Amino acid sequence: MTLVKFNSDKKNNALMPGFNDVFDSIFNDTFFTDRTVMRVPAANISETEDNFHIELAAPGLKKEDFNINLDRNVLSISAELRSEHKDNQKNYSKREYSYNSFVRSFTLPESADDNGIEAEYVNGVLKISIAKREEAKSVRRQIDIK
């Protein structure tokens, strides 16, 4: 049985007041949202003089869970995590299995050196460093005034 909460403070112009509240409460229930919302790790992208950096926040995984592929100039990062509880000693009245996977793809700029890509997974963050081509590195020098 599911309790449906009605928001009497919410004014809507529907022909049947409360009708939208019923669907909002059903589809905003954690049972549905936990299974329908695709969880994709947040990414930070930055650039230094010599490298591009991508950081993905993916706690709870191991480095073996990740798969990083480069196809032409598209870098794809995927992970698959299956957690199954195998306990035959207990008599469960409800048992849910968890299966999570994601794929993030990034198009590399032409200035990226596809042979200079390194990755490491530290403290729940996947860090990818992509070297820049020599001709793309910014040249800095002091110019004297005559």
Rank of each mutant, 00 (worst) to 15 (best):
residue 85 H to L: 13
residue 103 V to N: 13
residue 91 N to V: 06
residue 95 R to Q: 15
residue 110 E to G: 09
residue 82 R to Y: 02
residue 104 R to Q: 09
residue 100 N to W: 06
residue 105 S to D: 15
residue 89 Q to M: 09
residue 87 D to N: 15
residue 102 F to R: 06
residue 109 P to I: 07
residue 88 N to P: 00
residue 80 E to G: 07
residue 84 E to A: 11
residue 95 R to C: 03
residue 105 S to G: 02
residue 79 A to T: 01
residue 79 A to G: 13
residue 85 H to P: 01
residue 96 E to S: 13
residue 79 A to F: 03
residue 104 R to G: 00
residue 82 R to Q: 09
residue 105 S to E: 13
residue 97 Y to C: 00
residue 108 L to K: 01
residue 91 N to W: 12
residue 108 L to A: 12
residue 107 T to M: 08
residue 104 R to E: 14
residue 88 N to H: 05
residue 83 S to Y: 10
residue 81 L to E: 09
residue 79 A to M: 05
residue 80 E to S: 11
residue 92 Y to L: 05
residue 105 S to K: 12
residue 79 A to P: 06
residue 92 Y to A: 10
residue 99 Y to Q: 03
residue 79 A to Y: 03
residue 91 N to M: 05
residue 100 N to V: 05
residue 82 R to H: 07
residue 95 R to V: 02
residue 109 P to F: 10
residue 89 Q to T: 15
residue 109 P to G: 10
residue 92 Y to G: 00
residue 96 E to A: 09
residue 87 D to M: 05
residue 80 E to W: 03
residue 94 K to C: 04
residue 108 L to I: 04
residue 96 E to G: 01
residue 87 D to T: 06
residue 86 K to C: 02
residue 78 S to E: 11
residue 96 E to Y: 11
residue 79 A to E: 02
residue 84 E to F: 14
residue 92 Y to Q: 01
residue 86 K to W: 11
residue 107 T to R: 06
residue 78 S to K: 06
residue 93 S to D: 11
residue 94 K to P: 00
residue 90 K to D: 03
residue 80 E to Q: 12
residue 85 H to E: 13
residue 109 P to M: 07
residue 100 N to K: 05
residue 106 F to I: 08
residue 89 Q to C: 00
residue 103 V to L: 13
residue 101 S to P: 00
